[in-house]
């Protein structure tokens, strides 16, 4: 059989597909079956087990905001994951309190996911509730007015469109809020 392997195209096709599918199926279909936390929304009432809270589905307005976040490609420069690195929990933290790490159960309602691969701007996985609407309005009009040295593009067409702006901010304020970990009051209206 194998002496003629290079002459047999059908044998080739079968072998190439089988080898590929071994890894292909074991890394895509099987993991969510083994690790059920991928599909179970976050919920915790017991402070002993870590931050308490409950993940809720997005409202219609938040989904519209998420669509704008997607449309403008925000996710190319902002990741949404507080990784299991000390520096990440500090940077996602707030006023001296470290943020909890991101876990699969916090992202169950996310489609498309926004984890990101490149961090040109800061991570946004815990940005919800940190800045109020006025801050965001000024920032979208020209980021450099609030953060000198920033290279984020201005987004006047969002800042000048109240419906889009409010939807986008409503979405941003949900980010990382399932886990209740911050000591201070929110800026959210």
């Amino acid at each position: 059989m194998l002496g003629n392997a290079e002459k047999n195209a059908i044998l080739f096709v079968i072998a190439a597909v089988l080898l590929f599918l071994t890894g292909g199926l074991l890394t895509t279909l099987v993991p969510p079956l083994i690790d059920t936390s991928w599909g179970r929304p976050f919920e915790n009432d017991d402070p002993a087990k870590g931050p308490t809270g409950k993940l809720r589905p997005y409202t219609e307005q938040e989904l519209a905001g998420r669509e704008i976040y997607n449309r403008e490609g925000c996710w190319y420069c902002h990741t949404q994951q507080t990784r299991t690195l000390l520096a990440d929990t500090k940077r996602s933290g707030w006023r001296g309190v470290d943020s909890p790490i991101s876990t699969p159960d916090e992202f169950v309602y996310d489609a498309p996911h926004m984890f990101g691969t490149k961090r040109t701007g800061p991570d946004l996985s815990r940005v919800g509730g940190k800045y109020d609407s006025q801050w965001h309005l000024t920032h979208f009009r020209n980021p450099r007015d609030l953060v000198p040295g920033s290279i984020m593009p201005p987004f006047p067409w969002i800042a000048d469109n109240p419906e889009e702006f409010e939807a986008l901010v409503a979405y941003l304020q949900t980010l990382g809020r399932a886990k209740d970990w911050r000591p201070d009051q929110d800026y959210e209206d």
């Binding site: 993991p31 599909g39 309602y109």
Partner: peptide
């Protein structure tokens, strides 16, 4: 047909 981490896993595959 997937969401969240499950979708990310397929996406990165």
């Amino acid at each position: 047909f997937a969401t969240g981490v499950n979708q990310a896993n397929l996406n990165w595959m």
